[in-house]
Design a protein around this nucleic acid. Sequence first.
DNA 1: CCTACCGATCGGTAGG
DNA 2: CCTACCGATCGGTAGG
Lengths: 198, 198
Amino acid sequence: MSEGYLKGRIRRDDIVSAAAAVYGEAGYHASSLREIAKRAGITHAGLLYHFPTKEALLAAVLERRDAEDAVREQLNIPPGLDVLRHFLALAEHNVRHRGIVDLYSRLAAEAISEDHPAHAYFARHYREARDSIAQSFRALAETGELRPGVDPDLAALTFIALMDGLQVQWLTTPTQVDVIGSLRLSLETLLTVPLFPE
Amino acid sequence: MSEGYLKGRIRRDDIVSAAAAVYGEAGYHASSLREIAKRAGITHAGLLYHFPTKEALLAAVLERRDAEDAVREQLNIPPGLDVLRHFLALAEHNVRHRGIVDLYSRLAAEAISEDHPAHAYFARHYREARDSIAQSFRALAETGELRPGVDPDLAALTFIALMDGLQVQWLTTPTQVDVIGSLRLSLETLLTVPLFPE
DNA sequence: CCTACCGATCGGTAGG
DNA sequence: CCTACCGATCGGTAGG
């Protein structure tokens, strides 16, 4: 691998980081290649040398997010309480890294449109998140740790939707929203056992 | 009141309706005055005769939404189960009127920014919604209809955030999201009494 | 309310 | 990677 290739990869990483930051602040559509390029220290035409279109850059941002998530899920936690605790820890991490939440919340709302370049990404993301959580609720149902009569799929949808809704409200009025408290309340009312036994 | 004034009010209403529709499809920033004007049957310069800036038009859209909400809340339901049932009915209404949900979800995400013209509107909207629901949960706590140990304020935050999160996920993948089922599940796990006794 | 226009900004391309 | 440019589109204004 030549130095040129390495430099190119580093530069591409810088651009993707700058893009993620700008998307988080302004959303995808309102972001300009010129602003992203400026933060990466090049011209917007230079940026287009690395990423041929605005959409290709968005794809790269989402791909990196997926790669990071994959690393985190490499842990391969077995379905059950630990998965729920893991998502709670993720929420705690997010509250300390506003940029990630910003990017995600804005893109998710833009991607409602079927013709948005990130629409398929979010449709898949939601389905995978619901499936993952539902699997854990099903495991908990078998051991009697899920409240009787609660549908695991509906519980999974509820948990994911709650996380998303809390994020937007927290970003808008940070001091008035207790993200972790709400998630713990929701999980504890769905379960028959405490999340964190003393 | 002269015919000219009446015609002006009707025209303004048409423009606000067109704006609400376009905001719902594209968000506020991505919407153009030319597209809104075209749907209202005038030129974009003609639109600016009625609303001096793009922001003034957004303000008019939000004001009309508030006015409609005020009419609905004129009912003045006393805090308690009926308020929760009322919000559930509102959610059922929304699922049948996608445009309203679209407008709300997109604007809410854009308005995360403190400098967005609708930021203050949403900050107030969230606070009022939380206060209204919290009041009902407090009333239910006094009569033992709220699950013991559940904080009414946290329950209110949870319910509002869940509604918002469900809407975005439903708009993105409509066939896979049971909005009403999730809300009923959430309320029923928070309460000690059934929402709809048989 | 319209025609006609302005300056600014956008994504993308040519050519090096 | 840059300079220089293109056509398109934007919100807003002048003048009627």
